[in-house]
């Protein structure tokens, strides 16, 4: 067969496959946008739910999800980045560090519902945090850690060894080299990892199911020991647990969650682009 024809056929086929990948995403976004957009209004975003969640807004769920993301970040970012710095810069290659790495890889593949049950056992019951923002954030943080650690470690390792050598040759301690040269270079990668991890945690239902999420709580949380509603769980509830729920509220909630996650993604991309512009080696 004519090689040009083969090439054309091949590329055509590949283009088709790529298209097939994109179609479901476009359909999902399209469907949610089409049916959810009419529900979005100032009231929907800023009011408490009314009439058994069938009317009013979803403010407590939005605030709850924002708080959980913040709480997760507060715990998972310092721990995750710290662990990554230790593993990449300080830890020697021993049996122990290899076991730690293996554990991190495995943690990343644990189903989220298992984290949820773990959170109930440790934070809610054993440590007596109750179902609270604290317990939920900690559970989500543990689930997010492996993503943050492995992406951050990768970003740190991508910084050429040479910079550490030069820093040492100028009389810098290893930490001074890390702080002044390596970390700033690795920052875009670390930020990407952090946001990817937080994105995943923001959309999860299972880990917050038993640790923090309230079925219906038309009030904003007052402390970290309070329960809260959260967008993913709220979506689950109004889609499956409440009969006669207007479709527009369901899609409106889904759209809100989608916009939240997508906007975080865009922010991550912008930050990364900003830092990448400034570095080259």
């Amino acid at each position: 067969m004519n090689p040009h024809l083969v090439q054309k056929l091949g590329f055509g086929l590949l283009a088709l496959i790529s298209l097939v990948v994109v179609i479901p995403i476009l359909l999902v976004i399209g469907a949610i946008l089409a049916q959810g957009a009419p529900a979005i209004s100032a009231e929907f975003l800023t009011a408490m739910p009314r009439d058994g969640m069938k009317a009013g807004g979803i403010l407590p769920a939005i605030v709850g999800t924002l708080l959980l993301t913040a709480g997760t970040g507060l715990v998972a970012i310092p721990m995750g980045v710290g662990a990554a710095i230790y593993l990449s810069e300080y830890a020697r290659d021993t049996g122990l560090t290899r076991a730690v790495r293996l554990a991190i890889v495995n943690l990343a593949s644990v189903p989220s519902v298992v984290y949820g049950l773990f959170g109930v056992g440790i934070f809610v019951l054993l440590l007596q945090f109750g179902t609270s923002i604290l317990a939920g954030s900690l559970t989500l943080a543990i689930m997010t850690l492996p993503v943050i650690i492995s992406t951050s470690e990768e970003a740190l390792r991508a910084v050429p060894m040479e910079f550490r050598t030069v820093s040492a040759s100028l009389g810098g301690t290893p930490w001074q080299g890390i702080r002044r040269v390596v970390l700033p270079q690795a920052l875009p990668g670390i930020i990407t990892g952090v946001i990817l991890g937080l994105l995943r945690s923001a959309g999860e239902t299972a880990p917050i199911l038993f640790t923090v999420a309230a079925f219906y709580l038309p009030a904003l949380p007052q402390s970290v020991m309070d329960q809260t509603m959260a967008l993913p769980y709220h979506l689950y509830v109004i889609s499956t647990q409440v009969p006669g729920m207007p479709l527009s509220i369901q899609f409106g909630t889904a759209l809100t969650l989608l916009i939240y996650v997508l906007s975080m993604n865009v922010i991550a991309t912008l930050i990364r682009g900003y830092f990448r512009r400034r570095r080259e080696w």
Partner: peptide, 25 residues
């Protein structure tokens, strides 16, 4: 002090490069 084979300034400003030693040490 040491100067290496390949020019290897830090990917930072001119000032920050020269200031590195006195600043951190």
């Amino acid at each position: 002090g040491m100067v290496f084979q390949r020019p290897n300034p830090f990917p930072q400003t001119v000032y920050d490069n020269v200031a590195f030693g006195p600043r951190v040490v």
